[in-house]
Computed example of a mutant assay.
Amino acid sequence: MHFQLTEDQRALRDGTRELLAGRFGREALRSSLDTAADAPVPVLDRGLWRELGAAGLFGLCLPESAGGVGLGLAEAVLVFEECGRALVPGPLVATFLAAGDVEGAASGETVVTAPYNGLVPWLDAADVVRGDAAGAEPLAAPVDPLTPLHRVPGGERSCPPWRATLLYAAEQLGSAGRTLDMAVQHAREREQFGQPVGAFQAVKHVCAEMLVRVEIARAAVYAAAVTGDPVEVAAAELLADEAAVQGARDCLQVHGGMGFTWEADVHLHLKRAWTRAELGGRARDAEEALAASL
């Protein structure tokens, strides 16, 4: 069997990266942060949402007869990987999964959210809530400044469907790939004692370990997208969470003290990775699913 991406899949991935770079590049990301810092509640960019819908992101897996693109979950994973890489804010996963059931979701006219693991992202910005969010209370200081959260009392048992877990894992994979690139770029450009910090063995080892985690997670996420096996999805979740969270921490280490400053983007990936890990599924549940399958 041939496990490489097809030409069409590579074109989809590259096209998505180009679209997001133009519409939600670093300047737009920092602008969103500044806006969120000055507002009581972060405001979702409805214009961006509609553009994502027009590009086919939310209707990617819908049949063409229903106004969708007619692709599969493997292609959706590639697109969500790019969204994670760009730190696109908003309830992407819930809106994507609702595209076939909620009017306007596929086109980006309707924003959909859902409670996962007792947390509801972007509740105030959503037009439709799929699931029971009764009594949800806002978290005063969410970890990620671009992911406002509400907590549903007693909602810890509301684990997400496996497709949601897989898409969150794909976003984690994209974030891990981005922090790897950031670490390598900084190691090449930053000089100490007359040479790039990447010339030091300790920094080389950190970057190499980041690469290994990213590639292992990528293999697991792509495989789970093809098989749809819940056990493989659980494995993909664990590996992608580790790649994203530990990768962001290692990227901070490579950057040194400047990586912790507000002006740097590294800490944003770490905060989003922590948040996705909570929304996408609890590690304990994934570990239990894997153990039960052995």
Rank of each mutant, 00 (worst) to 15 (best):
V143H: 06
V128Y: 12
L146W: 01
L146R: 00
L123V: 10
G131R: 05
E137W: 00
A126H: 10
A134Y: 04
P145R: 01
A141Q: 12
L139C: 02
E156Q: 13
R151E: 14
A133C: 07
E137D: 06
A126G: 10
V143F: 01
V129K: 09
A134V: 14
R157K: 06
S158Q: 13
V143Q: 10
T147V: 15
D132A: 01
A126E: 11
L149I: 11
A133P: 05
P142T: 04
H150I: 07
E156C: 01
T147R: 11
D127H: 15
A141F: 05
A141R: 12
G131L: 01
G135M: 08
R130W: 00
V128K: 04
D124A: 15
D124V: 04
A133E: 07
R151S: 12
P148Q: 09
P142Q: 05
G155F: 02
D127C: 11
L149R: 01
P142D: 04
V152S: 02
P148E: 06
R130M: 09
L139D: 05
P148A: 01
D132E: 13
E137R: 14
G155M: 00
A125W: 07
G118L: 10
D144L: 05
G118H: 09
G154T: 00
G135N: 11
P138A: 14
G135A: 07
R157G: 05
A134L: 10
P138R: 15
G118E: 06
G118K: 06
H150Q: 03
A141C: 00
G155L: 00
A140F: 04
R157E: 15
A125N: 08
W122L: 09
A133S: 14
P160E: 09
R130E: 14
L139Q: 14
P142L: 02
L146V: 02
C159T: 13
A125I: 12
A125V: 10
V152E: 02
P148W: 07
A141L: 03
D132G: 03
D124E: 15
D124Q: 13
P142R: 05
G131V: 09
P138G: 04
T147N: 09
D132K: 02
V128E: 12
R151P: 00
L123E: 08
D144H: 11
P142C: 05
V152C: 05
P121T: 12
V143L: 12
L123H: 03
